[in-house]
Amino acid sequence: MIINHPLLGPRDASEFTYLGDAKLIDRPDWQSDTAAQDFYEYGYLRTNPAGEHRELWFHEAGDRSWLVVTRNTLTHEISAVEMARDVARAQGRSK
């Protein structure tokens, strides 16, 4: 596979390490009343879509960026690659 790194252009997937669902960005609030349940869902529950999947890849043999890659699990087509940091900011994770 080829991942089109937003900063570095197309790079071979072998340069990356895979983590999983990009929902891992949405880490729950530890002080919420439902924190225990929220963290259980965050840690253990994943959808397993046959189709588009947003997932985290780490450019370990490259610039050490975490990326959010939108990949079709059926065809491996990659429709979007974003800097995970930008995604995290867009999701309100700035302090």
Partner: peptide, 17 residues
């Protein structure tokens, strides 16, 4: 290696600023 990867995850994905 895994710890460094994890630390970057926390830095970039959880606390980007």
């Amino acid at each position: 290696l895994p710890v460094y990867r994890h630390m970057e995850f926390v830095r970039q994905c959880l606390y980007p600023d």
